[in-house]
Amino acid sequence: MLQELIGKRSNKVKNQVERGMVKKFAEAIGDPNPIFIDEDIGKQSVYGQNIAPPTFPRVFDYGELTGLELPKKGLIHGEQNYHYSRPLLIGETVYCYTELSDYYEKKGMLFVVMKGHGETLEEETIFTSEQIIIITETVRKGMKS
């Protein structure tokens, strides 16, 4: 069912690393450090700007992957990876898309590997992410085949 979707990508979506959202996110993970929030500290930092926490890309819109319909409930988040070429800067624009990179079966469960990409307008990669979603046998029975 998912086999033919491997390698398919969503359309790129324009996202902004918004100051307010970064502040809210940093507070929600209990890390309201001035490097994320305080404008003066940001300017004086090696980045010349405030940065976003490494798990911030969770908030971005990666577009829709046509044809990919995962169950809305009962999914287990198995693994999560981020790879950065540099931290995300507040105020910058990031173009994001997602890709089904792999899909396999193990002990009756399905493992779905989704990749995320964040790029500049010039298509330079800022970060990539990988998420492994586990679909248990019970949830799987409710899926369309």
Partner: peptide, 28 residues
């Protein structure tokens, strides 16, 4: 899971003047 992963990253926040997190991989 991402709440815990987000919290875990704050161990490194005091060091962003010296470098950055290039790879962050976890298993829940």
């Amino acid at each position: 899971g991402m709440w815990t992963m987000g919290n875990l990253s704050k161990l490194f926040t005091p060091y962003y003047e010296d470098g950055f997190i290039q790879d962050y991989k976890v298993r829940f």
